[in-house]
Design a protein around this nucleic acid. Structure first.
Lengths: 202, 202
DNA sequence: CAATAAAACTGATCATACTCATATTTATCC
DNA sequence: GGATAAATATGAGTATGATCAGTTTTATTG
C-alpha cells in the first residue's frame, strides 16, 4: 500500500467517494438502477445532491464508479479459473462463464452496466472503460497465446484480433441474455457452439 | 399494396405517426438526439406533448420508430451488394461495410440507436428489435449457406451459430468505432482481419 | 339520427437528473 | 497566525421526459 501522506483534502475526498460508491451499490442492488434516485444516493452517502455530480458525471456514470474495482477482481478470477482448464475451448468457456455467473446475480443491473459500457460519454469515461477492456482482452490474448504452445491454436494467429473476435462473440451473446432473448441455458449452449465454430473456422 | 379500407381512425393514426417520425428524423439529424426535446418533436409534428408517447414509449423508443423502415431497406441493399462478390470473405466485408457506410453519415445518431437496440425496454420493443435482428441474421445465414455450395465453408457448419458469431465480431467492432476507440480505417482493417480469422479458425 | 361506447388526444402537472451561484473548507504565503 | 487563494461542497433552481384525468373524435347500435 503506497497510501502515504494523504492530505486532509485527499482523505475527505476518498472517504466521500467511498460513501457514495457504497450507497449507490447498496441502493442499486436493493431497488434497481432506474428506481434509485440520485437524491436517495446522496442522502445515504450523507452528501448534498450536487456533490454526487462532482464524483460522477451522471447517474449512468455511477455504474462505472460502482463496478470498476469489482470488475477488475472479476477478470482476475475468471482468468485464474480459465487457466486451470487443459483445452482452449474450455478455457474460453470458463473465462466467459465466470463473467456471466457474476452478472447473473443481478441481471437488470448488469444490463444497465453494459448499456453504459457500450455508450461512453466523454474522454475521461472512455479511458476508464478502455482500461477495463484492455484488461479483459489482454487476459484473453494470454489464454490464446498459451494455447499456441499446446498446439491448440496456429502460431500465425494474431493475438489481438483473435481476442477481439472471441470477445465479440461473447459480447453479442451476453446482450441476448441480458435483454431476455435467450435464457441462461441457451446462452451456455450458444456460446460454446459459437466458440467451437470460431476455433475451427467456418 | 394491400392498403384497402383504412378507417378514418386508422388514416389519422397513420398520418400522425408519419408526421411524428418525419419530425423526429429531421430534428435528430439537425440538432442531434440529446439536444432535441420531445416538445420540439411534438410541435414540429403538430401534436400535443403527450401524444408523442402514444406512438413511442419513450424518447429512446423514437429512435427505433425512426430507423425501422430505413434499416430494413439498408439490410436489403447490403445483401444485394454482398451477393455480387465471389468470395465469402468479401461478401461478409461488403455486407457489414454497407451498414457502416450508412451509419457514418451520422455517427452520434448511430451511437444512440445502437445503445437503444442493445437495451430493449419491454416485450413490444423486444419483438420489434427481434424482427430486425432476424432479418439481418437471416441474410447472413443465406450468405454463408451459399458459400458452402462454392466450397468456401464447411457443410457441417451450422448456419445460425455461424451467422451469430460473425455478427458478434462485426458488432463489437462497430461499438469501438461509434464510441471513438478506433477510426474508420482501423475499423475496416480490424473487421476484415477478424473475419478472416473466424473463417480460417484460430 | 340520437345515444352510447370506445378510442385517441390534450396539456397541465409531476418527478428527477443535473446545474450553478454562493458558502465553506483546506492549503499556501509572508 | 492572519490574510489570501484554491479547492470543494451545498441545495435551491432549471429543464425535460413522462404521466394521466379530463376532453374530443370516431365507431357502433337500435
Amino acid at each position: 500500500m503506497a497510501k502515504v501522506a494523504l492530505s486532509r483534502r485527499e482523505q475527505n475526498k476518498a472517504e466521500k467517494r467511498g460513501r457514495i460508491i457504497a450507497a449507490a451499490r447498496a441502493l442499486f442492488a436493493h431497488k434497481g438502477f432506474e428506481a434509485t434516485t440520485t437524491q436517495q444516493i446522496a442522502e445515504a452517502a450523507e452528501v448534498a445532491a450536487g456533490t454526487l455530480f462532482l464524483y460522477a458525471r451522471s447517474k449512468d456514470d455511477l455504474l462505472i464508479l460502482v463496478f470498476r474495482e469489482e470488475m477488475i477482481e472479476l477478470v482476475e478470477r475468471a482468468y485464474r479459473l480459465a487457466r486451470r482448464e487443459p483445452a482452449l475451448i474450455e478455457q474460453l468457456v470458463t473465462y466467459f462463464e465466470t463473467f456471466v455467473a457474476h452478472h447473473e446475480r443481478d441481471l437488470p443491473l448488469a444490463r444497465a452496466l453494459m448499456r453504459q459500457l457500450a455508450h461512453v460519454a466523454g474522454a475521461d469515461e472512455r479511458s476508464e472503460v478502455n482500461e477495463l477492456m484492455t484488461n479483459v482482452l489482454g487476459r484473453l490474448s494470454l489464454i490464446i497465446e498459451s494455447a499456441k504452445g499446446r498446439s491448440q491454436a496456429r502460431f500465425e494467429t494474431p493475438l489481438t484480433p483473435a481476442a477481439r473476435a472471441v470477445f465479440g462473440v461473447y459480447y453479442f451473446n451476453l446482450l441476448s441474455l441480458l435483454n431476455g432473448y435467450i435464457n441462461r441455458e441457451q446462452f451456455d449452449r450458444d456460446l460454446r457452439g459459437q466458440l467451437e465454430l470460431v476455433l475451427r473456422g467456418l
